[in-house]
Design a protein around this nucleic acid. Structure first.
Lengths: 257, 257
DNA sequence: GCAAGTTGTCCTATACGCTATACAGCTAGA
DNA sequence: TCTAGCTGTATAGCGTATAGGACAACTTGC
């Protein structure tokens, strides 16, 4: 995922080839067109092609052999982490792997307007804001920003947050959790997120926004999560239920990736 | 979503500011720091700052007033289209809006290795490959690439594909649909997809890959979908079911966006 | 062994992104 | 009204990406 330093034209071609490789349009093991041929095809100079191939090489997507050509490499570990989505709330399928959390920020703040509105807070009401990076096997894969109303946030400590899942903390504190609404989208990595996740600026990210509400409609948690798509994806298995006319699908608890 | 032409430095700053605006760190209506001030803060020239602001302006995120300053604009229409995710298979919540399909490609091909494997095809077995762009109110929002085994694909016509949902065509043809598996991720727009969706190269995209299988494990459909995140997102409402110890969530059919 | 074709490296000239600076026109507040 | 500060615009100079070419080293197939 090296959305690299090389600007403009080289980057275009990098993205183009990367897509073709990822989509399987060029199968692993195949020889790519030669550098002069690619330069001709794309109407750029060979130097530019070489820059694009450099990026693909450092991504580990291709092998370059002097005198022989450039070859698409067999992918090694395809999708390390998978989020179980069967209950519509993501949680990790860990399979014995070591996960960790780094707490980047923890404070009580005046929340952004959008958050205050989603949580149905009174004007001036503050929230506990925390920024966490989750790791698996020592490598970061998600960047989580959460807002919790101050009165609820005070029921647990900074140390709790670094070890216990937030939803558990909330329930333990007596906050009633009634319903949730979440949206999944995509965005680009800004400088700070890129830094925290070990990515280049402008890399693609999976984005999840979740608002958890109590029975009276009061906000309990606002979560904004960003995931590295190469290390994390949402995955779900579905079984078909019901008869032909009625097309329905029901989730199957995922157990592996 | 104008991940623009301006390269490198301007793009960085564009992304940085865009993130701060989107996250609410800079509230709507607020005046941004002046261009010279921003230039100083970020260690770049004012021209570069101006390029970043140009992009934000064409995105409709800011208003620039000569002599007065640059202001964060109130967001207008937040999320036009929403996919109902309650049955775990996306389908549009249309709300009376006009949707359309453009068929970009239709042919029988030797499928990529990854697709052949996912569909459990014999070696050499061909597939019907189609590329479609879906529109809402005349504006493109998704780019769909599907592979269907040749024997099934032959049961409907190119014209059918432009009007009837594919899953319906498959069921009508007698193909038994037993289970499906799908994954959601994110990626960047390559040149062709960017062109088809009216985006700049390198824009972020939501990505969905779905494999539909019959009762005997044979493949029925392989779908690779790319969505413009500014026009489309997956959204779901959840109700809490079960008792405290058992944390379970059940989906609620979404009906609006 | 030989020839054709490949990647790796170096060169020069050009195009372009970026800096730095200056100034005009506009706005808001004193 | 006047002034300080803002955006809009233009200019010149510098560094770097790109184009285009040449050559060496290597691999493969004949």
């Amino acid at each position: 995922m090296d959305a690299s330093l090389e600007p403009l034209k080289a980057r275009r071609i990098y993205l183009l080839l990367r897509e073709r490789i990822a989509s399987g349009e060029i199968s692993p093991g195949t020889r790519l067109a030669s550098e002069p041929a690619l330069a001709l095809q794309h109407g750029v100079s060979r130097v530019t092609i070489r820059r694009a191939l450099d990026s693909l090489a450092t991504d580990g997507l291709i092998d370059r052999r002097v005198g022989a050509g450039t070859f698409v490499r067999e992918p090694e570990a395809p999708r390390p982490i998978v989020a179980d989505f069967s209950n519509m709330l993501t949680h990790l399928v860990e399979m014995g792997r070591r996960t960790g959390v780094r707490l980047l920020a923890f404070s009580y703040v005046q929340p952004p307007e959008a958050v205050a509105q989603a949580l149905a807070l009174g004007s001036g009401e503050r929230t506990q804001r925390s920024v966490r990076v989750r790791l698996i096997d020592g490598k970061p894969f998600s960047y989580l920003t959460t807002h919790v109303p101050e009165r609820i946030g005070l029921t647990y400590s900074e140390a709790d947050l670094a070890t216990v899942p937030l939803l558990t903390l909330l329930e333990r504190s007596g906050a009633l959790v009634e319903r949730a609404s979440q949206a999944i989208s995509a965005t680009l990595a800004g400088p700070d997120v890129a830094e925290a996740l070990g990515l280049e600026i402008g890399s693609p990210l999976l984005s999840l926004t979740r608002v958890v509400l109590g029975p009276d409609g009061s906000g309990v948690e606002h979560l904004h999560a960003l995931y590295r798509p190469d290390r994390y994806s949402f995955q779900m298995e579905l079984h078909r239920a019901g008869e032909a006319g009625e097309r329905r699908w029901s989730p199957v608890p995922a157990k592996a990736g």
